[in-house]
Simulated assay, not measured.
Amino acid sequence: MFSLGTNAGIGLTIDTGKSASILLVEDDVDIALVMESWLRSQRYSVQVAKSGEEALQILQDSRFDILILDWMLPGLSGLQVCQHARREGDNCLIIMLTNKAHVAEKEIALDAGADDYLTKPFNLRELSARLRALLRRPKLFRGFTYQIKDLILDCSKFTVQKGGVDVPLLPREFALLEFLMRNADVVFSPEEILNNVWASEAQASPDTIRTYIKKLRRKLDTPGRLSMFRTVHSVGYCLDSDNV
């Protein structure tokens, strides 16, 4: 399934100075033992669940910085665990491990709320590199509520309202809107948006940003009015507070 490589990396800590905590959800005992040993050697704090159901039970009482989810679990799948975590407002970082190499299936995982994915077989050093990249990304400002006129985004409840009406957003759409509202009226290039919202540049491109801006326009703009998501030609995008 994976190889170790030759050089060990160094795990990152979170803002409190403590080692980042990981919930590893893997039903293959041998694979789980190898991964747990590797992650601990990288100075992460690791807990293991052998099923999706066990993972949800653990998540009821504990919070983690990162979830590593095997997609193909017996019973509740890793994808379902990911979706449940996002519905409950859990903003932890999520990596999906999958045998599914097709772009459409990877898109399903990312739209369900995963921040990154690794296709089996993979090198454990690559897993460590992905973890370090994820932990360098700024998190959502948990507990914050942003309001611009009648547009309200609640990070703790993972909800968005426009004109008093709930607007359901996919996790990636929510993260993009949160970033733009937090930096209203500031123009960002597609590359800057990728670095702040997407887990790694390998997952997305400027075309991806355009696609998600269009999705937000369809869901949040008022027909017949200028879009609140302003495109600055050859520069980038911003949320224009005057047009909300």
Rank of each mutant, 00 (worst) to 15 (best):
Ile10Arg: 15
Asn99Ser: 15
Ile213Glu: 09
Leu151Pro: 02
Glu178Tyr: 01
Ser205Trp: 10
Asp27Arg: 09
Ser3Thr: 15
Ser45Val: 03
Val244Cys: 07
Leu180Ser: 10
Leu79Arg: 02
Ile31His: 03
Gln147Glu: 11
Leu140Ile: 15
Val235Gly: 12
Asp150Gly: 07
Leu124Ser: 05
Phe122Gln: 03
Leu4Trp: 14
Arg63His: 09
Gln47Asp: 09
Arg172Phe: 11
Tyr44Asn: 00
Val48Tyr: 05
Arg210Tyr: 09
Asn7Pro: 08
Glu107Lys: 12
Glu53Trp: 04
Thr13His: 14
Glu53Val: 06
Ser128Arg: 12
Ile14Thr: 04
Gln60Met: 08
Ala133Arg: 14
Pro171Thr: 05
Leu124Asp: 00
Thr145Ala: 02
Tyr44Trp: 02
Arg230His: 15
Leu153Trp: 12
Met96Arg: 05
Asp90Met: 10
Gly224Gln: 03
Asn183Ile: 02
Leu177Tyr: 05
Lys50Cys: 14
Gly9Arg: 14
Lys50Phe: 14
Ala8Gly: 10
Leu4Val: 12
Leu69Lys: 03
Cys155Pro: 12
Ala32Arg: 08
Thr231Leu: 09
Ile68Lys: 00
Leu24Lys: 06
Ser51Gln: 11
Leu23Lys: 01
Thr145Ser: 05
Val186Pro: 01
Ala8Thr: 00
Leu23Phe: 03
Gly9Trp: 07
Ser62Lys: 15
Leu177Glu: 09
Leu118Asn: 11
Ile94Trp: 00
Ala8Lys: 13
Leu140Met: 11
Gln203Leu: 15
Leu24Met: 05
Asn195Leu: 12
Leu131Arg: 01
Lys139Phe: 06
Lys106Met: 03
Ala32Val: 08
Gly236Val: 02
Ala199Trp: 01
Val48Arg: 01
Lys214Leu: 12
Ile22Tyr: 04
Met72Glu: 14
Arg210Asp: 08
Gln60Glu: 14
Asp27Gln: 11
Ile68Trp: 07
Pro74Ser: 03
Leu216Gly: 08
Gly89Ala: 09
Glu126Cys: 10
Val167Gln: 07
Glu54Lys: 07
Phe174Met: 04
Leu12Lys: 05
Arg130Trp: 00
Tyr237Glu: 07
Leu169His: 05
Arg172Gln: 14
Glu173Trp: 10
Thr159Phe: 11
Pro168Cys: 01
Val167Arg: 10
Ile213Thr: 01
Ala133Trp: 04
Ser189Tyr: 01
Met181Phe: 06
Val187Glu: 06
Ala8Asn: 10
Val25Gln: 08
Arg130Val: 03
Leu170Ser: 05
Tyr212Leu: 14
Ala101Cys: 04
Glu178Gly: 05
Leu194Phe: 12
Arg130Asn: 11
Asp65Ser: 07
Ser41Trp: 04
Ser189Ala: 08
Asp61Arg: 13
Arg182Cys: 00
Asp27Met: 09
Ala184His: 13
Cys92Ile: 06
Asp116Leu: 10
Ala129His: 05
Asp115His: 07
Thr211Trp: 00
Arg210Val: 10
Trp71Met: 00
Ile94Val: 13
Ala204Thr: 15
Thr145Asp: 11
Gly78Cys: 07
Pro206Met: 07
Phe122Ile: 08
Ala114Lys: 11
Tyr146Trp: 14
Ile68Val: 13
Asn123Cys: 12
Arg218Met: 02
Ile148Gln: 11
Asp150Val: 00
Val244Met: 13
Leu97Cys: 01
Ser128Val: 02
Phe122Thr: 02
Ser189Met: 09
Leu226Ile: 05
Lys214Asn: 13
